[in-house]
């Protein structure tokens, strides 16, 4: 990716704190945030904090990654159903890829996502790790 500070800066709130948007009319919640409801078309949307826990619903293990992730394969990326029912896509960490399975209880953790080359900014955000018993 081309280096860019503003592109990363303007998404910080949504990525660091897991902020989505909720339709005031039909109640649907979206992540990433949307200004227009995909369900009912309403433009009355408010920002909401999403829960930081969920269940692993589906996953893949990336053996050949993109340039930004060549430092770290294999990478586990999962579809996570948050406790409020919203489904998000995130990396799953702190687990051996061979032990990943559907139904795992996960919790968000603040991590480094990728670096913009040798001298660019470092992008941070949330990944998910197994929840402690």
């Amino acid at each position: 990716m081309v280096q860019s500070v503003p592109r990363v800066w303007r998404e910080q709130k949504y990525k660091y704190r897991l902020i989505g948007t909720k339709c005031e009319k039909c109640g649907s919640i979206f992540y990433p945030p949307k200004k227009i409801c995909l369900k009912c078309g309403s433009e009355k949307m408010e920002e909401v904090k999403l829960p930081e826990e969920g269940i692993l619903e589906n996953y893949t293990i990336i053996h050949y990654p993109t340039r930004d992730f060549t430092y770290n394969p294999p990478i586990v990326v999962g579809l996570i159903r948050l406790t409020n029912g919203v489904r998000i896509l995130a990396q799953v960490v702190d687990i051996d890829p061979s032990e990943v399975k559907e139904g795992l209880q996960l919790r968000a953790v603040f991590r480094r996502l990728r670096e913009q080359g040798e001298d660019g900014v470092i992008e941070y955000g949330l990944k998910f790790r197994p929840k402690e018993e």
Binding site: M1, R7, E11, K15, Y31, P32, T60, I62, Y64, P65, T66, D68, F69, N72, I75, V77, L89, A90, Q91, L113, R114, E123, G125
Partner: peptide
Amino acid sequence: EYVASTGIT
């Protein structure tokens, strides 16, 4: 922003 940044291909 929200998909490529997870490391997925």
